[in-house]
């Protein structure tokens, strides 16, 4: 097989890699899964488009450690997220919460869609509403027949 294809397949076959150091991971797999899930929803404020689970930044590592401590201490997912939001604001959540200040953010795409549909409807109406052209006069009909016959020949 072409080595390039092999390389491509290898890249595609690689499982998603998380930055979490095995030493940081909780022993209880259920708790670790919960911690990872919470961490995947928290933005790393150093690299910003990565979650703290994916980032190698020191601050992300610190937050991973703290999330795991709190998971182990029996805090709920919402309590842990609230802890981080209290310090870093809603921006730290990769999925912004639904509330009045984010109404436009969440509703915006729907508004655009509605606007587009309305525009489409009025455009369509106008097309349908156009009156049909008046019938051809005898002269025009003769001319049309002639043209069509010419084409046949």
């Amino acid at each position: 097989m072409n080595p390039r294809i092999v390389a491509l397949l290898l890249v595609l076959a690689a499982p998603p890699v998380f930055a979490a150091d095995p030493a940081e991971m909780l022993k209880d797999p259920a708790l670790e899964t919960r911690a990872e899930k919470i961490g995947q929803g928290l933005r790393c404020l150093v690299c910003q488009s990565e979650s703290i689970e994916n980032s190698n930044a020191d601050l992300a590592r610190d937050l991973r450690v703290i999330v795991r401590e709190q998971v182990q201490a029996g805090q709920s997912d919402d309590q842990i997220r609230a802890f981080v939001v209290a310090r870093y604001g809603d921006y730290v959540l990769l999925a912004p919460p639904f509330k009045t200040s984010t109404l436009l953010l969440w509703g915006g795409p729907g508004l655009f869609l509605l606007g587009g549909l309305a525009a489409l409807r009025s455009f369509h109406r106008r097309r349908v509403g156009t009156p049909p052209p008046p019938p051809l006069s005898a002269d025009e009909q003769r001319r049309l027949d002639q043209l069509l016959n010419n084409e046949d020949a």
């Binding site: 404020l45 020191d58 610190d62 450690v65 310090r87």
Partner: peptide
Amino acid sequence: PAPGRVSIDFGVTG
């Protein structure tokens, strides 16, 4: 020292 608990309480990013 890491994990910088007090600094995180201050909401530091860098």
